[in-house]
Amino acid sequence: MSGFFEVLFSPDVPFIRNALFAGILSSVLFGILGSIVTVKRIAGLAGAISHAVLGGIGIALYLSATGIVPNFSPIVGAVIFALLSAFLIGAVSLKSKQREDTVIQAIWAIGMSIGVLFMAKTPGYTNPSSYLFGNILLISSCNLILLAILDVIVLFLAWRFYPQLEATSFDEEFAAVRGIPTQAVFLIILAVTAVAVVLLQTFVGIVMVIAMLTLPAGTAGYTARNLASMMLLSTLYSFLFSAGGLVVGWSLDLPVGAVVVVLAGLVFLGYATVAVLRKKRSSRDPSSS
């Protein structure tokens, strides 16, 4: 482990520092957006958006490599695809509930397939797995700046509109009666989550972004007293899992994204097991309640 800290402060190995900064900045997004996604029960929607993003990355890589659109950044392609899929999924979820499942699965699968197809036809070597599972070598200073900007935007929105967010998440019908534009709030949450997913996938990858949007928030949900404390706790857990995953992954030469998610999953399962055991015990012993 001492080797990790030597590398962390070495001026010759900037990517480890970038990865740690990415972990810190990602924690804010995982904590706040993850809590909202969890209490609003839209993890499936966020999962579909995160996977569809590969389509945008594949198209951008192809257009850039073939010279059709020179220097077309994969992140720009991913953001365009993420926003398109977010609005499509949002519209279907609001207007055609009975088709929601089918459309979400279709966007999930078609987005990924388009990505794989375009990457296959992109000149030169393109490895989809670095996008699917994340690669700390891919984290650039530009990524960090974008993550920091999004952190500030999300923190401001969560603080400024906290009462409206809490009301729409707890009881959407009542919130609508109070005049809150619940459909607009829902679409904005999906859009911000979509952009966040694109920036976060560099750290843990497309496949595992959704795990980090749900596991730390789910763990925080066991002890949080309200949505605000769930966001705070979830941010803290996300940071601990990210930093822990980075140290373990680097020390044992394992993929960092996968280690982060395994750590988050183990802690979540631990909390879930304790909660189930406590519930069983209190149902056996009514005097304890």
């Binding site: 998440s169 707890f170 009542f174 109070r178 949900g221 007293r225 309200n226 404390s229």
Partner: peptide, 14 residues
């Protein structure tokens, strides 16, 4: 959903 009684009632003035 983590929320206290008073927070639910305060929602009535949102």
């Amino acid at each position: 959903f983590p929320i206290s009684v008073i927070e639910v009632v305060m929602m009535g003035l949102v």
